[in-house]
């Protein structure tokens, strides 16, 4: 059985829709991982120990185990405790939490690296601790880690392929559907890879622009 790419065009619609879902998942999980990362970082640094401790355990588990395993836990675990979420939501939560933990590590280190003078400058003006954190420290810490968080976003895009395994409709699953009808895995997985590659290029270009935009304000 040789290769025959002529079957691919008739499934363009399916692949395109899959690509659309992949982008939607990446954006949704990306936002969750960004705000979740900030939240986790602040909790990990300033939270009460009764919150900090379980959080450390959670971060430790999430950083030491494969994403795919975590997706199984979240998808089947939620069903187990009686929460039957659509696969899409479970996938976004799984991806989002996974990368939130990684972002949180970056932001924590970045918060600790904010110059002491910034706290003094803010406190001298009369800002409270919370205001200093909210308006001065966190915005600076986040800006400083835009490049590595961008790398996490790129990793997230590619890892979004994993949610196909728990049945979330996206690019990889779309390719699988086409394959189940045509029995042409090579052609369709390659086509899917090409789509990922293009989305990845666009994301990288977008992140570079973002980095440049924040250059002056650092």
């Amino acid at each position: 059985m040789g290769l025959d790419f002529t079957v691919v065009p008739s499934y363009f619609g399916v692949l395109l829709m899959g690509a659309g879902w992949t982008i939607a998942i990446t954006v949704a999980a990306g936002l969750l991982s960004f705000f979740g990362g900030i939240f986790f970082a602040v909790v990990a640094l300033y939270g009460h120990w009764a919150i900090r401790l379980p959080f450390r355990l959670f971060a430790w588990l999430f950083m030491g185990t494969p994403l795919l395993l975590q997706l199984f836990l979240i998808y089947f675990g939620l069903i187990q405790i009686g929460i039957d979420l659509p696969a899409f939501v479970a996938g976004v939560i799984g991806l989002g939490l996974h990368f939130a933990v990684y972002n949180s590590e970056l932001i924590q280190a970045s918060i600790l690296a904010v110059d002491k003078g910034q706290y003094e400058g803010a406190r001298t003006l009369g800002l409270s601790r919370l205001q200093t954190l909210r308006y001065i420290v966190v915005p600076q810490a986040v800006r400083a880690v835009v490049p590595p968080m961008g790398n996490n976003m790129i990793a997230l895009l590619k890892d979004s392929a994993l949610v196909s395994v728990i049945g979330v409709m996206e690019l990889t699953l779309a390719a699988q559907q086409a394959i189940s009808r045509t029995y042409r895995p090579f052609e369709f997985y390659l086509a899917a890879a090409a789509c990922y590659y293009v989305i990845n290029l666009a994301l990288e270009a977008g992140l570079r622009r973002l980095e440049r935009r924040f250059q002056a304000s650092r």
Binding site: L3, S164, T172, P185, F186, Y189, A193, N200
Partner: peptide
């Protein structure tokens, strides 16, 4: 660029499922 720009899972699939075709 190609191997970092596409999901590892897809690469695994291409080789395992698509390999026999080539």
């Amino acid at each position: 660029s190609v191997f970092r720009g596409t999901p590892a899972l897809i690469q695994v699939f291409i080789l395992y499922f698509g390999g026999p075709q080539i």
